[in-house]
């Protein structure tokens, strides 16, 4: 019986179902990242404005989103919004909203960091060459911030993938839930299924995130 637990994976469509479960969270991460990119860039530029009101607003947004555990934000969106505004958000819509809000905050901070890292003399030199503000932005600021931003953005994607695993706690059927279903359905035939199923889920997450992290690390080294 000792090694029989692994066979549960090859029963019927079990492995495929696990992959589909992982696909649910990967899809949410992907949508959230794609929405966070433009919004985060806008937020980052908004944050570098010298206007005290815009500074205060973006600061409060950023601090609140970043200090709260993402699971709390999910609870607020999933349970609270329904109650307060009467909008009945489904679990996946609330997940996309929360992870986009979170991703935008993180991305905004990265963009702000990259923008303020450009030394003043770069702007002065561009002005001395007679470049307009728009030209300076396109030819001087963007290329330099991109090199810093791209690896960090890729890293944000892995963080997003890892964090979206939380959606199981607001009742979504994703890879952990599917795993549990498989374990429960085979409780008597394969008593050690839990070890293998959760082990495989662990491995699947690793295989999803590790190549992306490696890519970020490589780019970071090359562009330093």
């Amino acid at each position: 019986m000792r090694d029989s637990g692994i066979n549960v994976l090859f029963l019927g469509k079990n492995f495929l179902r696990l992959l589909e479960g992982l696909g649910v969270t990967l899809r949410i991460s992907l949508i959230a990242v794609l929405l966070s990119l433009p919004l985060g860039i806008l937020l980052g530029m908004f944050m570098t404005l010298k206007n005290p009101v815009s500074k205060a607003i973006s600061r409060i947004y950023l601090e609140f989103i970043r200090i709260m555990p993402q699971l709390v934000l999910l609870f607020i969106a999933y349970f609270g919004v329904t109650r307060m505004f009467g909008w009945n958000l489904s679990a996946d819509v609330s997940a996309v909203i929360v992870f986009t809000l979170w991703g935008t905050a993180e991305m905004g901070d990265l963009v702000r960091g990259a923008l303020i890292s450009i030394p003043r003399h770069q702007y002065d030199s561009a002005a001395a060459l007679g470049m307009t503000k728009v030209q300076t932005f396109i030819h001087v600021v963007v290329p330099q911030t991109m090199r810093r931003l791209i690896p960090l953005t890729i890293n944000l994607t892995t963080r997003m993938i890892k964090t979206t695993s939380l959606v199981v706690l607001i009742g979504m059927t994703e890879v952990l839930k599917v795993g549990k279903q498989i374990i429960d359905a085979n409780r008597f035939e394969y008593p050690t299924a839990a070890l293998w199923i959760y082990g495989v889920i662990f491995l699947l997450y690793f295989l999803a995130c590790w190549p992306i992290s490696m890519l970020a690390k490589k780019l970071e080294k090359r562009w330093r």
């Binding site: 890892k162 964090t163 695993s165 706690l169 374990i183 008593p191 839990a194 070890l195 889920i201 662990f202």
Partner: peptide, 23 residues
Amino acid sequence: IEISRNTPLLVQLFFLYFGLPKI
């Protein structure tokens, strides 16, 4: 370090709490 940084805590906990008792 690579394994720990590239997997979510929730999945690590499920493995520890539900998986390991089987061995």
